[in-house]
Amino acid sequence: TEYKLVVVGAGGVGKSALTIQLIQNHFVDEYDPTIEDSYRKQVVIDGETCLLDILDTAGQEEYSAMRDQYMRTGEGFLCVFAINNTKSFEDIHQYREQIKRVKDSDDVPMVLVGNKCDLAARTVESRQAQDLARSYGIPYIETSAKTRQGVEDAFYTLVREIRQH
């Protein structure tokens, strides 16, 4: 089974770092803004072998026109913010609204991801993020692309959301 996953969120929150940590098991430290990259990885989730087709997208506003296209083809979405960047957390709402509009559905598989949880300088409390996820009816997972904490959990949870859909 193949799953088309799309990673969305503001610029600099760590979308590529999360994806590369999942696929290649290493942490990319330097920031190089993405336009669009796709990665494929075969994994076993709950005993089922599946192929993850992951689209890593641009957070930069100037590429926002490309969003409709990949939102149409994606089956599930990782909505990523950084726990030390309140603005990126506030941006999640717009991504969710755009996904709902493009998919013409209120019920699209999504996982809210709070990345950079290895950093002490948190400005978005776990509780705020949990409340937001609960209001959307989606899971919330904290990750660190640096330490790998929660990385597999985030992507695998999204696959489970798609399966249950």
Rank of each mutant, 00 (worst) to 15 (best):
T1C: 03
T1Y: 00
T1N: 01
T1S: 03
E2G: 06
E2N: 07
E2H: 04
E2I: 00
E2W: 02
Y3C: 07
K4P: 04
V6S: 07
V6C: 10
V6N: 10
V6T: 08
V7S: 06
V7T: 08
V8Q: 04
G9C: 00
A10P: 05
G11N: 15
G12H: 15
G12W: 14
G12T: 15
G12S: 14
V13F: 00
V13Q: 14
V13I: 14
V13L: 13
G14A: 00
G14Q: 00
K15Y: 00
K15H: 00
K15V: 00
S16E: 00
S16M: 00
A17N: 00
L18H: 05
L18E: 04
L18P: 01
L18R: 00
L18V: 05
I20F: 00
I20K: 00
I20A: 00
Q21A: 11
L22D: 08
I23G: 15
I23C: 08
I23F: 14
I23P: 00
I23H: 11
I23L: 13
I23D: 04
Q24C: 11
Q24N: 01
Q24E: 02
N25T: 12
H26L: 09
F27Y: 03
F27W: 05
F27L: 09
F27N: 00
V28M: 06
V28N: 07
V28Q: 11
V28K: 02
V28P: 06
V28W: 01
V28A: 03
V28Y: 07
D29L: 07
D29I: 04
D29P: 07
E30I: 10
E30K: 12
E30D: 00
E30T: 08
Y31F: 04
Y31A: 04
D32Q: 13
D32Y: 04
T34K: 01
T34R: 00
T34M: 00
I35C: 08
I35R: 07
I35S: 05
D37W: 06
D37A: 02
S38Y: 00
Y39Q: 03
Y39P: 00
Y39D: 08
Y39R: 00
R40Q: 04
K41N: 14
Q42N: 08
Q42K: 04
V43K: 05
V43S: 06
V43A: 06
V43P: 10
I45G: 08
D46M: 02
D46V: 10
D46E: 07
G47Q: 06
E48Y: 05
E48I: 01
E48W: 05
E48M: 04
T49R: 08
T49I: 02
T49Y: 01
C50Y: 04
L51C: 07
L52S: 05
L52Q: 06
D53A: 05
D53P: 05
I54G: 01
I54M: 05
I54K: 00
L55N: 14
D56C: 01
D56K: 05
D56L: 03
T57L: 14
T57N: 09
T57D: 06
T57E: 09
A58C: 14
A58R: 15
G59A: 12
G59D: 08
Q60N: 15
E61C: 14
E61D: 07
E61T: 13
E62W: 15
Y63S: 15
Y63W: 15
S64K: 10
S64M: 03
S64N: 05
A65V: 08
A65K: 05
A65N: 07
A65M: 02
M66F: 12
M66Y: 11
R67T: 14
D68G: 04
D68R: 07
D68H: 03
Q69V: 03
Q69M: 08
Q69C: 11
Q69S: 08
Y70C: 09
Y70T: 02
Y70A: 03
M71F: 01
R72E: 01
T73N: 06
T73I: 01
T73F: 06
T73V: 03
T73M: 13
E75D: 08
G76H: 08
F77C: 02
F77M: 03
L78D: 06
L78Y: 08
C79T: 04
V80E: 02
A82N: 14
I83Q: 08
N85H: 01
N85T: 04
N85S: 06
T86Q: 08
T86I: 03
K87L: 05
K87A: 03
S88K: 10
S88N: 10
F89W: 05
F89P: 01
E90I: 09
E90G: 05
E90S: 08
E90N: 07
D91I: 08
H93A: 10
H93V: 08
H93P: 08
H93S: 06
Q94I: 02
Q94N: 12
Y95L: 03
Y95N: 00
Y95G: 08
Y95Q: 01
R96W: 11
R96I: 13
E97C: 07
E97T: 06
E97I: 03
E97F: 08
E97A: 07
I99T: 02
I99Q: 01
R101N: 03
R101W: 07
V102I: 03
K103M: 12
D104I: 02
D104G: 07
S105V: 02
S105N: 15
S105C: 07
V108F: 04
P109L: 01
P109I: 00
M110W: 03
V111M: 09
V111Y: 14
V111I: 13
V113S: 07
V113L: 12
V113H: 10
N115D: 09
N115P: 13
N115Y: 05
K116M: 15
C117F: 08
C117I: 09
C117M: 10
D118P: 08
D118I: 00
D118A: 11
D118M: 04
L119V: 12
L119T: 15
A120W: 11
A120T: 11
A120Q: 11
A120I: 13
A121Q: 11
A121D: 09
R122Q: 13
R122M: 13
R122K: 14
T123G: 11
T123S: 07
T123R: 09
V124I: 14
V124H: 13
E125V: 13
S126L: 11
S126Q: 12
R127A: 15
R127T: 08
R127F: 11
R127V: 07
R127W: 14
Q128Y: 13
Q130M: 01
D131L: 11
D131P: 09
A133Y: 15
A133D: 05
A133S: 12
A133M: 07
R134D: 10
R134G: 12
S135V: 11
S135T: 11
Y136R: 08
Y136A: 09
Y136C: 09
G137M: 10
G137K: 07
G137A: 10
I138W: 10
I138T: 04
I138H: 11
I138R: 04
P139W: 06
P139E: 11
P139D: 13
P139I: 08
Y140W: 10
Y140N: 09
I141L: 10
I141H: 08
E142Y: 05
E142W: 09
S144N: 15
S144D: 15
S144T: 14
A145L: 10
K146C: 14
K146M: 14
T147C: 14
R148L: 15
R148A: 10
Q149S: 09
Q149L: 12
G150F: 14
G150I: 14
G150S: 14
V151R: 11
E152K: 10
E152M: 12
E152T: 10
E152Q: 13
E152L: 12
D153I: 12
D153N: 05
A154G: 11
F155S: 09
Y156L: 13
Y156W: 10
T157W: 13
T157H: 11
T157I: 11
T157P: 07
L158F: 04
V159D: 04
V159R: 09
V159Q: 09
R160L: 09
R160M: 12
E161N: 10
E161Q: 12
E161L: 11
I162C: 04
I162W: 07
Q164C: 11
H165A: 09
H165D: 14
H165C: 14
H165Q: 11
H165N: 10
